[in-house]
């Protein structure tokens, strides 16, 4: 235990995301209600987003916006060190992923509304019963 503690502390971000991701996965597998499954899917997506953003982090670095870029041509000549700015690539990927996840969540909600309109329930076992009755 004493050996593994510094190992966990150095990588605690991954532990948090794995736990969050597994909460989402469990909800998607075990919950009976379709809306709860969707909430689980959203938790899962959030874990992935956090995971990506944390990959881009560097100690002692600032946000990926070049400083003093407005200061005329002298400032442009200054050398930019990659170690001073955190990695912009995961931010870009997750920026679009967040909006796309909202849009796909909207489609999932629309499907849930249609299912409710037709079968008057969102519980999976009742749904299965009503589909087999038809």
């Amino acid at each position: 235990m004493t050996d593994s503690l510094p190992y966990i502390v150095a990588k605690y971000n991954y532990w948090l995301y794995v736990i969050l991701m597994m909460i989402g996965l469990y909800a998607m597998i075990a919950k009976n209600n379709l809306i709860k499954k969707l909430v689980g899917m959203n938790i899962f997506q959030t874990a992935i987003i956090l995971f990506y953003v944390s990959i881009g982090y560097k100690t002692d670095a600032t946000i990926p916006i070049i400083q003093n870029a407005h200061g005329g041509h002298d400032a442009h000549a200054a050398v930019i060190h990659a170690a001073d700015y955190i990695n912009p690539l995961p931010h870009v990927l997750m920026l679009t992923a967040i909006v796309v996840s909202v849009a796909t969540f909207g489609v999932a909600m629309a499907l849930a509304v249609r299912i409710y309109q037709r079968y008057q329930t969102l519980e999976e076992d009742e749904l299965r019963m009503r589909i087999s009755e038809e």
Binding site: Y12, Y14, I55, G56, K58, A61, H81, A82
Partner: peptide
């Protein structure tokens, strides 16, 4: 699997070594 990942905030993690440096500079 996280055992093979680099530490939190490591500036030399593989993700920050290749393309992103080109972008930043």
């Amino acid at each position: 699997g996280t055992g093979d990942f680099s530490n939190w905030g490591d500036p030399n993690s593989p993700a920050s070594l290749h393309l992103s440096n080109e972008y930043i500079e």
